[in-house]
Design a protein around this nucleic acid. Structure first.
Lengths: 148, 148
DNA sequence: TTGCTCCTCACGTCACGTGAGGTGGC
DNA sequence: TTGCTCCTCACGTCACGTGAGGTGGC
């Protein structure tokens, strides 16, 4: 009965899939609670810590920021489970993801089109990629207008 | 004739659209050459520096990393214009952009589907987003298999 | 006893941004 | 002279990763 008093950070790291130093980092910034310690000063985790870390890891995989996860962990507490507020956080995150995809899709189109023109130059070989980079930003004007 | 000896960093920042501290940073890491100095120690740029900075800015906007840009700047030199090698760098970057889009598209699909199920619970209101986060990563298996 | 695990700093990464405290230049 | 611009550190951001040098625990 004595051997199972607390999981070491190494075991928790393996089970949760969160890197050992990352667990310490999460503790430092207060994202997860500090566990108890053994007499020798080693961290001793309760099984519950595994679930919390798995939650954090999954949320990171889904691209939530640390601060978003901090909010989600609060909203996920067994007592109140504030689902409506969870949805607000998730929707905000989805919006960010879609915005990033849109940004990258624009880059993708420009790069693909430009590279597609490589090696098709006439007698004097031009370089479409370099020309692209030596060109002024086309949409420097409408840059701050699409927020609200 | 004396007034036009060298542009100040402030003017260069305004014209190129690159933040003043960012210009100093680029100088520090050797991405752009250090300009001459006035007697008082202020940086004095040649007009050519504007073109170089505009190139860097455009490349950053297109998502190239600093090291990729360092390579591109070398390949873009007026003398040799190594277009074939430029294309190699650009294609590698395009591949990265596409990989990021694919990653984000997967997240987007998962999030959108999950949020779409919010508020549709039966009598006992479940929380699809929290359930998603409390779930094990589905593809933990095939995670390191798609490299080559 | 071996050696694997854990400990705490502290610094590095990426591409910058933001002060602090002081001075050049029109 | 005013005050705007520029100077050089040094530290902060984000989410960690990587040593260094030392010790716990089976």
């Amino acid at each position: 009965m004595r051997a199972s008093r607390g999981l070491s950070i190494g075991r928790v790291a393996l089970s949760s899939g969160v890197h050992l130093e990352t667990i310490r980092y999460y503790e430092r910034i207060g994202l997860i609670p500090a566990p108890g310690r053994t007499e020798g000063g080693h961290r001793a985790y309760e099984p519950l810590a595994l679930r919390r870390l798995a939650f954090v890891r999954r949320a990171r995989e889904l691209g939530f920021s640390i601060e978003e996860i901090r909010a989600l962990l609060g909203l996920a507490e067994p007592g109140h489970r504030a689902c409506e507020e969870v949805r607000v956080v998730a929707e905000a995150h989805l919006k960010e993801v879609r915005a990033k995809i849109a940004d990258l899709a624009r880059l993708e189109a420009i790069l693909a089109e430009t590279i597609g023109r490589c090696g098709q130059g006439g007698p004097a070989p031009s370089c479409p990629v370099l020309e692209l980079l030596e060109t002024e930003t086309p949409d420097a004007q409408g840059r701050h207008g699409a927020e609200t």
